[in-house]
Design a protein around this nucleic acid. Structure first.
Length: 197
DNA sequence: AACGAAGTCAACCGCTAATTT
DNA sequence: GAAATTAGCGGTTGACTTCGT
């Protein structure tokens, strides 16, 4: 589409929806060379896109084992609980849902779950503790992402330390189960931590 | 059938963190 | 150690679809 290529003018990148042709080029290139150096990928693969755009497209659609749509009740429940704990840290939440992307979860939350949650809140609640944690997470979520990363919730609680997210492949879900069990009688992060550690 | 409102979701933007030179 | 580059994140936007009147 919009393209300037006279060498002197600033190159105008494609924007908007990806075409099948672009998808194919990107997928082929990554299959051969791997998914790194996105800027290089964009130019060598003959894509008039910025590196960021290529990365996003790959991560959200072209990557193998991507699940799209049909979020199950179990997944939904997990998202709600994780959000309660982590706030808007979509990539962390997505990391615990195989085949799901942060973008998909973020969209799903914003379009479905946030409404659901606010409706729930309007209803009289028996558990006040649950309310408290929800509000705390939401409040944290409004902060800039990276700054929030180490001060989730108002308690002195480091989520990264707690879960050790660096241990990839740890999708054994034992920790999830632990958390979910604890969540049944939520009384605060500190207690969760002390009871697990 | 036509139209506007509301909902959904793919993609972009701006920023920070991490890595490389 | 500093500067430049790259990767990654969450927030936001805008095009498209669905729904209600």
């Amino acid at each position: 589409m919009a393209r300037k290529n006279d060498g002197s003018a600033k190159r105008v990148m494609n924007k908007g929806a990806w075409t099948e042709e672009e998808d194919r080029k990107l997928a082929e290139y990554i299959e051969i060379h791997g998914a790194k150096r996105w800027k290089t990928i964009a130019s060598i693969a003959g894509l008039n896109r910025c590196g960021k755009s290529c990365r996003l497209r790959w991560l959200n659609y072209l990557r193998p084992n991507i699940k799209r749509g049909n979020i199950s009740d179990d997944e939904e429940d997990l998202i709600i609980r994780l959000h309660k704990l982590l706030g808007n840290r979509w990539s962390l939440i997505a990391g615990r849902l195989p085949g799901r992307t942060d973008n998909e979860i973020k969209n799903y939350w914003n379009s479905h779950l946030s409404k659901k949650m606010s409706q729930k809140e309007k209803k009289p609640q028996t558990s006040t503790a649950q309310d408290t944690t929800t509000k705390t997470a939401t409040a944290t979520a409004t902060k800039p992402s990276h700054k929030a990363s180490n001060d989730c919730a108002d308690a002195n609680f480091d989520v990264n330390e707690f879960f050790d997210f660096s241990a990839e492949g740890s999708y054994g879900l034992e920790w999830v189960n632990k958390f979910l069990e604890l969540d049944e009688n939520t009384t605060g992060y500190q207690e969760k931590v002390s009871s697990i550690v």
